[in-house]
């Protein structure tokens, strides 16, 4: 049910985070500030898990935010719209399972 949304790519491009990994260690406060402000924007060193989780959360939020999409899913699934919206919001907590274990290197 992953939707690739035009909206999201827009968000990423406007911020234009061409942040190289080098930059990440020099304390670029302004960029960090932006990062904290715009949840869901990626950076050069983003892990696959983080990226896909962001994608899913964006998608779920978009489904909840577009009345036609919630109706569409509700009809397909035979559930009430309220239930679909609730389950979608619930799934935002952890849409792609727990994060992978970090290698201690």
């Amino acid at each position: 049910m992953l939707l690739s949304l035009g909206e999201r790519s827009n968000q990423v491009s406007t911020l234009a985070l061409n942040m190289s990994s080098e930059l990440r260690y020099t304390a670029n406060t302004q960029l960090e500030h932006l990062h904290a402000r715009y949840t869901g924007t990626g950076h050069a060193d983003i892990s696959k898990y983080d990226w896909v989780t962001h994608q899913h959360r964006d998608t779920l939020a978009s489904i909840v935010g577009h009345p036609t999409l919630t109706s569409y899913l509700a009809i397909a699934d035979g559930e009430a719209i309220g239930r679909v919206r609730f389950e979608m919001t619930e799934r935002m907590l952890q849409p792609c399972g727990p994060p992978p274990r970090k290698d201690d290197d």
Partner: peptide, 29 residues
């Protein structure tokens, strides 16, 4: 920003019953 985004408010609205203020919220944050 425009668009039904995750962190841009617009999804929920709540008003004070005495009409003194309104809260507008996004799905996240």
């Amino acid at each position: 920003k425009s668009g039904a985004r995750r962190i841009v408010p617009g999804q929920y609205l709540a008003t004070d019953p005495k009409g003194r203020s309104v809260m507008i919220s996004a799905v996240e944050k």
